[in-house]
Simulated scan of single mutants.
Amino acid sequence: MNTSENSTTTLTTLDDLITALSEGDRATYNHLIHSVKLSSENFEKYISWSDECYTRNCIVDNEKFELILICWCKGHSTPIHDHDGEECWVKVITGEFKESIYKENESGGLDIVKTAISKPNQVTYMKDFMGFHSLENLSDKKSISLHLYAKPIRKCRIFDAESNTFVLKELEYDTIAS
């Protein structure tokens, strides 16, 4: 870790981030994820790809937080989902992503309330009171994003467009760091 004269800490490696998250508490997570500057080289041992769907690659999963690297091919997107009450930060490492935020309307359907584009080193934040969201890789190449959850998320509700209802989905990893 590099410490500057005004005693703010600049995190420069994935290990620095993991240590700071482990030593800190939920109140520090927003600052930490915004301040860390990481390149794709930091994640080489966690990257896995699938042509069919994005992959969820666990870096850290403990009682305090969950850190996941998501690897996206061109055109991959998440279903519209919530976060089972937990906070979620998404930091773009490579690529460009569109986040769409939805609110449930009186008839149980969803209305889009906001879209935003995120580029490398930008961070988005989501918590269930804000609505539901989906992410889409807009890049015409493979892209990666780092997802921090304040407490691990084991399940979420995803919107099933066919039935126009939410269904519960148990979450799994494609790879787990050793």
Rank of each mutant, 00 (worst) to 15 (best):
R56A: 05
L69M: 05
C88F: 02
I59D: 04
Y149M: 02
T124K: 03
D51N: 04
V123R: 03
G85H: 12
I112N: 09
I144F: 01
C73P: 00
E66K: 09
A116G: 12
E136H: 13
F97E: 09
A116N: 13
D82Y: 02
E106Y: 11
G108I: 07
C73G: 11
H83M: 05
L67A: 04
C53N: 10
D51V: 05
F129H: 14
F132C: 07
L69R: 06
K151F: 12
K91D: 08
E87W: 13
I112A: 09
Y149K: 01
H76T: 10
C73A: 10
S145M: 06
V123A: 03
V60E: 08
Y125T: 10
P120D: 00
L146S: 03
L69D: 02
L148F: 01
F97I: 10
E99A: 13
Y125F: 15
D61H: 10
D51L: 10
G109M: 11
H76W: 05
V113Y: 13
L148D: 03
N121S: 15
L135M: 15
K119D: 06
N137V: 11
K74S: 13
T115V: 09
Q122I: 03
M126L: 10
I93N: 02
W89D: 04
S145R: 00
D51K: 08
S77I: 04
K119W: 05
E86G: 06
L148E: 01
T55G: 04
Y149V: 04
L138K: 10
C88W: 00
H133I: 13
T115Y: 02
T55W: 01
E52H: 11
H147S: 08
M130I: 15
I70E: 05
S145H: 00
M126I: 09
T124E: 07
I70M: 14
E52S: 12
I117N: 05
D61M: 07
S134R: 15
V90T: 08
Y54A: 04
F129K: 14
D82W: 03
D111Q: 04
E136K: 15
P79M: 07
E63M: 02
T115P: 01
G131F: 05
L110F: 08
S50P: 14
K141Y: 03
S118I: 00
C58I: 07
Y125L: 07
M130L: 13
N121M: 14
A150H: 04
E52V: 09
G131T: 08
E86H: 12
Q122G: 08
T124S: 14
I112F: 02
Y102T: 09
V113D: 06
S77W: 03
N137C: 07
E99Q: 11
I117M: 06
E86C: 14
I101E: 11
G108E: 05
G109V: 00
I101L: 12
E52A: 14
V90H: 01
P79R: 08
N62S: 06
W89I: 05
S139R: 07
K98V: 09
S145D: 06
H81C: 06
E66F: 02
I117Q: 10
A150I: 10
S77V: 01
Y149W: 01
